[in-house]
Design a protein around this nucleic acid. Structure first.
Length: 253
DNA sequence: AATAACGTCAAG
DNA sequence: CTTGACGTTATT
């Protein structure tokens, strides 16, 4: 299943350092013959009917347990004292747990088949035509990762460095490996430092350039990463406005 | 040095 | 507001 392939977490050696340098794999042939009818905005605006969002917002007691204790917080960089707590009151670990649930749902064959309208049993979906290919599961039908759902879930990716327990204990180590030294965080002196991709959001986890978006097509002049790979965190203004305005001011570009 | 990509700004 | 171009920074 393609979703498993593309969002296989940092456990995959390939992706462990993918944020440092994401391999620019050659475009899959089927991508090139793309003729998909949907634009990027389609995937963004299309709500996800396959997942009961309410169940994500109101998780079972078991999930509460999983996310509860403060001492369950993974270690993190000392420079972010309050990022781990969502302003909405939803524990970030809890939120991460919800996301993992969503991911599991996405990986369920039955759910997938259903959401895709039973377009066929082929395992080909990874090579399904179109720019959306391996991303559609996230923004489209069967993965509730549409940006529109973040406000619904009270989820804030601000700080962006949410981590799931399923990602292992190397949370902060991962960040360090990704270059999150205090200096590169821009917290200290300059403040004009480049921010780095979080490496954990769905776009960051995407390994392939779509080669079809304007950023891909215009890479030489545009100097921009593929739109589908643009880190959720970097889409935000650094130290920008609060959650509400973040949500309403969401830019997908 | 080459390459990738973030930040910013101007044009549409 | 969105998009593209360019300067700049970071990494290899």
């Amino acid at each position: 299943m393609s979703t498993a392939v593309d969002i296989a977490g940092p456990s995959s050696p390939d992706q462990a350092h993918s944020s440092a340098k994401i391999p620019n794999e050659p475009l899959r042939p089927s991508l090139k013959r793309s003729s998909h009818p949907y634009s990027l905005s389609h995937y963004i605006s299309t709500p996800s009917p396959a997942v009961d969002v309410k169940s994500l917002i109101q998780p079972s007691p078991a999930q509460h347990r999983a996310a509860q204790p403060t001492n369950a917080k993974p270690r993190r960089a000392p420079s972010w004292p309050d990022m781990w707590e969502s302003p909405s009151g939803l524990h970030l670990a809890h939120a991460a747990e919800l996301l993992m649930r969503a991911g599991l749902l996405a990986l369920t064959p039955a759910t997938t088949e259903q959401a895709r309208g039973g377009s066929g049993p082929e395992e080909e979906e990874e090579d399904a035509p179109g720019c959306g290919t391996d991303f559609q599961p996230f923004l489209g039908a069967w993965f509730p990762f549409s940006p529109a759902l973040f406000p619904l879930a009270g989820f804030q990716m601000g700080g962006g460095h949410w981590r799931s327990a399923a990602m292992g204990t190397e949370g902060i180590e991962g960040l360090v490996a990704e270059g999150y030294s205090p200096g590169s965080l821009g917290a200290g002196s300059g403040g004009k430092r480049k921010r780095k991709r979080c490496g954990e959001c769905v776009p960051c986890r995407r390994q392939t350039n779509c080669e079809q978006c304007s950023s891909c097509r215009n890479r030489k002049r545009g100097h921009q990463i593929c739109k589908y790979r643009k880190c959720e965190e970097l889409k935000r203004k650094p130290g920008g406005p609060g959650f509400e305005s973040r949500v309403s001011g969401f830019r997908w570009r």
